[in-house]
Design a protein around this nucleic acid. Structure first.
Lengths: 193, 193
DNA sequence: CCTACCGATCGGTAGG
DNA sequence: CCTACCGATCGGTAGG
């Protein structure tokens, strides 16, 4: 069972780097010092690897939603931080979650879509709560949610642990940008550093 | 030469739907009522199709940058509109531009990266101009640019022509969200519809 | 643009 | 977990 986790780990890395279809089972096996066919002593199929990686990533993102508390502003702040932290800690899996899931076939595809929708609905819930309480000002909660999700989801494309900006800095400023977009002007903050 | 454009058109659609590696040349040929090998009378390789689609999409996005004029606020508004319009009109090609380019091999990969970078630098230029003129208020122009690009780039994931929101509505509100994030509060607008 | 074909590689299995 | 193998399919080419 431990070996299976190793396989999943490497599979996540390869799928995220080269893409699902461009990763062959033999290549995966080579990274584990195995023969191609030996993988099937631990897993049923290539697609199983993909859905498992998607599930692992989904669990991390959904975990962020569960930890939210406080007023809508605090929730958005924690959401931005949490989302970026998952991406920082799980870049390969997050990448698969955001992209490679599309290559799943119907039964698993449906599951992946459901997991992603749950996350999106969680985010929308926070936005809606802020709108209902009069804290966020936006014409359409739906569009503001899509905007927020877009800003968050794309970060896996450019965030690199070794980059010039620390996760702390990025989180801090991203949260500010998002809150401003939602119509929340921070007290005592005039926009200059 | 007209036939080649047809091939490129269908290739863009298939690459965006199923992904580059999951699209076979025989499948592409079938969509054109051709035999697999016949494609090579018009093109040199599968990869050529990919880079060409990327180039076409890049031309559209870079065209948006060229059309920008006025003050930074007007430019951001036109940028958001233009970007979303390209996505609306060229969804398959835009998708390939944002994703499938990763599967290019070194020489073409470099070109694709350069095209994307040019677009990103163009956007950064607008943000920087706004910051320099004191119109935009943000701690880091770089991070604000990444935020803006993230919000824009991800739209191809959820925008659908047949969706409930018209391109006009989306553009209008997206521009407002972006400008607010950049610290621009619209005069006479209090956030309520 | 077709027919016929190339070598390579694919995911997966049998049997140990 | 290995050896040896399966049928299928891949991108691409020769010759017409």
């Amino acid at each position: 069972m431990e070996r299976r986790d190793e396989i999943l780990h490497i599979a996540g890395q390869l799928f995220s780097q080269r893409g699902y279809h461009a990763t062959s089972m033999r290549e995966l096996a080579r990274h584990l010092n195995l023969q191609g066919g030996s993988l099937y002593a631990h897993i049923a199929s290539k697609e199983e690897l993909l859905i498992e990686v998607v599930r692992q990533a989904a669990a991390r993102f959904l975990g962020v939603l569960e930890g939210l508390e406080g007023d809508p502003v605090a929730k958005i702040r924690a959401l931005v931080r949490g989302h970026l932290r998952v991406i920082a800690e799980e870049l390969p899996r997050a990448t698969v979650f955001f992209h490679e899931w599309k290559h799943l076939s119907p039964p698993f595809l449906k599951e992946a879509r459901a997991l992603r929708r749950r996350y999106e609905e969680g985010v929308q819930g926070v936005v809606q709560e802020g709108v209902d309480k009069g804290v966020f000002r936006t014409e359409s909660a739906r569009l503001a949610t899509l905007f927020l999700l877009s800003a968050l989801n794309w970060t896996y494309q450019w965030y690199r642990p070794e980059g010039p900006l620390s996760l702390e800095e990025i989180s801090e400023q991203y949260a500010r940008l998002v809150l401003r977009a939602l119509g929340v002007w921070e007290g005592g903050e005039d926009g200059e550093a």
